[in-house]
Design a protein around this nucleic acid. Structure first.
Lengths: 346, 346
DNA sequence: ATCGTTACCGGCAACGATTGCGTAAAAAAA
DNA sequence: TTTTTTTACGCAATCGTTGCCGGTAACGAT
C-alpha cells in the first residue's frame, strides 16, 4: 500500500477495459454486466486493490475524518471522552484527528486552522480556558462546517452540544456537605470565563442560599489554569487557610483541582474530614485507593464522547442542514466516600 | 474552508496569470519575477488562500499524518505517551490519527489496515496483548512503511523502537523489597506473550536469585488482559492469599495491575505494608494521595512518546532507508512511598 | 428496412496542486 | 543588426477516482 499501490488503472490494464468500467463495477453500478463485475471484483481481490481515499476525498470533498480539540489528552476526563469518540468513529469508518489546546486561545486557533485545512468533515471541541471570543468557531460553523461542542461550551455558537448538568452536580455536592453539618464551605473552581466553571459555582451558591447560608466571596477561589499549574491550587488553598474564619469544607470543581487540593491539604498535615472535608468533580478510577476515600462527582465521560460524535455524524451525514439544535445534558453521579463524612462537633 | 474554499485557480483568475505561476510564486520558485511573486502572495493573503492538503497528498504521495495504535487511550501511561507524540507532531506539521486495539489482535489488524488505507506516512505502535504473530507488521514494514515500535515491541520486526528498561525497573523494585526485609515476594504481571511482561518477570527473578532467594512459581501470576478486567486481578490476588505460605510482598508489573491489586488488598482488609507490601509499575499522578503512599516504578511516558515520533519523523524525512536500526532504552524511576517500608518483624 | 430501446462500456474532464517542457519577450553578446 | 542567452511565464500532464456524455451493438417493434 506504500510504494506500489494498486490503482484502478492497473486493473483496467490487466483486464483490457477502461478505468470507468472498473470504477463502476466496483461500486456495483447497474450499467455494468454481471460478468464484467465478477471479473473486475476478482481481479481487484487478486491484486489486493484498495481504493485510494485521498483521491476519493479530492473528488467527493469529504475526508471521513473528524477533528477533536481538547485542552489536554493526559487527563482522565478527556481521555475517557476520546475513548468514547474513537470507539464510535471507528465503527462508522471515520478517523479521529486529535489536537490539544493546552488551555491556550492561540493554540486553539492554530489547531482549528490546521484541522480545517486538513478538511475534516466535522469538529468536536471543548473550549480552552483562555477562549472568551468564539468568533472563529462561529465563522467556521456558519461556513458550513458541522460542529459539536462538548463539556466547555458557548451559547454564542449555534451548534449542538453535550454537557454535564454542572449546576446539579455542584448543587448536590454542596447540599451533601451542608446536610453533613458543614457550614463554611469553600469552593475552588476554574477560570470564571469557563461555562462549566460558572455553572458549578452557581450550583454551589444556590445550595448555600437554599439552606440559608450566606455566600462568602472570600471562600470562592478561581484557578485560571484549572490546576494545570500546581502552584495555583496550592496558593488558593493557602489563601483559604489563613482566613480568620477558616473553611470547614471545600468543594472543588474539576479533576485536577480536586486531587491537587487534596494534595495540598495533605501536605499541610490537615486531617480530612475532621479539619476540612472535601468533595469535588473527578473522574479518577482510584478514588477508592485514596485515603480517606474521596467523595467525588463523577462525570459520564465515555457517554459524553459517544453522544458528541453521534450528534456530529448525524449532522455530517444528513443532507440538509439541521435546524433543530440539540443540546444533550448528562447527569453527573455523586459517589460518596469518607472525605465528606458528617462533621463531628468538637 | 468548507464550501467555497479558495484555490490556486481563483488567485490565477483574479490576477490574470496561470495556475503554474501562482503555484510557483507561492513556493518561491526562482523563475518567477519578484513583482509577480509579491502580487501573488498579496492576493493569496487577501483571499485567505490555504493550499488543499488533499490535493497535495495526491500529488506528492504523502499525507503528513501518522498513525498511532495503542491498546487503550484512557490509561495514564498511554495518554501521556500520546501527549508526547502529539506535541512534537504538531510542531512539525503532522497530524496524529489514533486507534485503539483494545488488546485485541483482530482489532489491531483492522486498525492497521485502516490506517494504511488512509495512507499514513508512518506508524507508531505498541502491540496488543493478543498479538503474537507480527507478520502483518513485518509485511508493512518491508513494503516501505516507516514504523517505530514503542513499549510493547517485537524483535521480529526490523524497525526502530523505544522501550523502557523493564528488566532494570523490575530488578530494582524487587531488590528494594528484598533489602527492606521481604522474602516471599509475589509478582503479578501481564500476559506472558508480551515482551514487557517477560522482561519484568526476568528482572524480578534475577533479583531474587542474586539475593539467594528461590523463585517460587506459585508466586508468579499472569493476568492475560493486564487488568482491563478487574476480576482477573482479584482472582490472582486471591490465589496468592490462600497459599499456605502467603507472600509478604507483591510486585506488580503494570499500572492497572498495581492499582487493581492494591484495591483488592484493601478490600480484603489487609494492612499495607505490615501484612503485605506492594510496589509496582504505575504512572498515576496521585500516588501521593494513596494511603499508604504507593511505591511505584514510574515510566517516562512523555519522553517515550517524544522519542518514538522523533525516530519516526527521522525515518520519514530521510531520503534513503535507514540502515541503522536504533533502539532507545529509557530508564524507569523508582519513587518510594510507604507501601514498601522496611518490614517490621513481629 | 427503419426506428427506438436497452444494456454496456469508453473517453473526457474534473477535483487542486505540482512540474517538465516549451517558448515569447527582454536582455546581453556577437 | 543579428544571434545567443536569460528571464518569466504558460501549457499540459500527472496523482487516483468519479461523473457526465456519448457511442455501439443487439434486439424487438413498427
Amino acid at each position: 500500500m506504500k510504494f506500489e499501490a494498486v490503482t484502478i488503472k492497473d486493473i483496467a490494464k490487466a483486464l483490457g477495459v477502461s478505468t470507468s468500467t472498473v470504477s463502476r463495477a466496483l461500486r456495483d453500478s447497474y450499467e455494468i454486466s454481471p460478468e464484467t463485475k465478477q471479473m473486475v471484483i476478482e481481479c481487484a481481490e487478486r491484486l489486493n486493490y484498495r481504493p485510494n481515499p485521498i483521491a476519493q476525498s479530492l473528488k467527493e470533498k469529504r475526508t471521513r475524518s473528524i477533528g477533536v480539540v481538547v485542552c489536554e489528552i493526559a487527563n482522565n476526563f478527556f481521555s475517557q471522552i476520546i475513548n468514547g469518540i474513537e470507539s464510535i468513529a471507528y465503527d462508522k469508518g471515520y478517523n479521529v484527528i486529535i489536537s490539544q489546546s493546552h488551555e491556550s486561545y492561540e493554540r486553539e486557533i492554530m489547531d482549528l486552522q490546521y484541522l480545517t485545512s486538513r478538511s475534516v468533515d466535522g469538529l468536536l471541541i471543548s473550549l480552552s480556558t483562555e477562549t472568551s471570543d468564539v468568533s472563529h468557531l462561529k465563522a467556521l460553523n456558519e461556513k458550513g462546517l458541522p460542529i459539536v461542542l462538548f463539556d466547555r461550551v458557548s451559547s454564542e455558537i449555534n451548534a449542538p452540544s453535550v454537557v454535564i448538568d454542572n449546576f446539579k452536580g455542584a448543587y448536590e455536592a454542596t447540599e451533601h456537605l451542608i446536610l453533613n453539618g458543614y457550614r463554611r464551605i469553600a469552593a475552588i473552581s476554574n477560570s470564571e470565563f469557563l461555562s462549566i466553571s460558572n455553572e458549578r459555582i452557581a450550583g454551589y451558591k444556590q445550595a448555600l442560599e437554599n439552606y440559608g447560608i450566606a455566600v462568602d466571596p472570600q471562600l470562592i477561589k478561581h484557578c485560571f489554569y484549572g490546576g494545570m499549574i500546581y502552584s495555583e491550587i496550592e496558593e488558593a488553598v493557602n489563601e483559604l487557610m489563613i482566613l480568620k474564619e477558616k473553611p470547614d469544607a471545600v468543594f472543588t470543581a474539576s479533576d485536577k483541582l480536586t486531587t491537587g487540593c487534596l494534595k495540598t491539604i495533605k501536605r499541610r498535615g490537615l486531617r480530612v474530614p475532621e479539619e476540612i472535608a472535601i468533595i469535588g468533580f473527578s473522574n479518577t478510577e482510584i478514588a477508592e485507593l485514596i485515603e480517606p476515600h474521596l467523595s467525588v462527582i463523577r462525570q459520564p465521560a465515555l457517554e459524553m464522547g459517544q453522544s458528541a460524535i453521534q450528534l456530529l455524524l448525524q449532522q455530517i451525514e444528513s443532507k440538509r442542514p439541521i435546524t433543530q439544535i440539540e443540546k444533550r445534558v448528562l447527569s453527573p453521579e455523586l459517589i460518596l466516600g469518607a472525605s465528606s463524612l458528617p462533621r463531628k462537633l468538637s
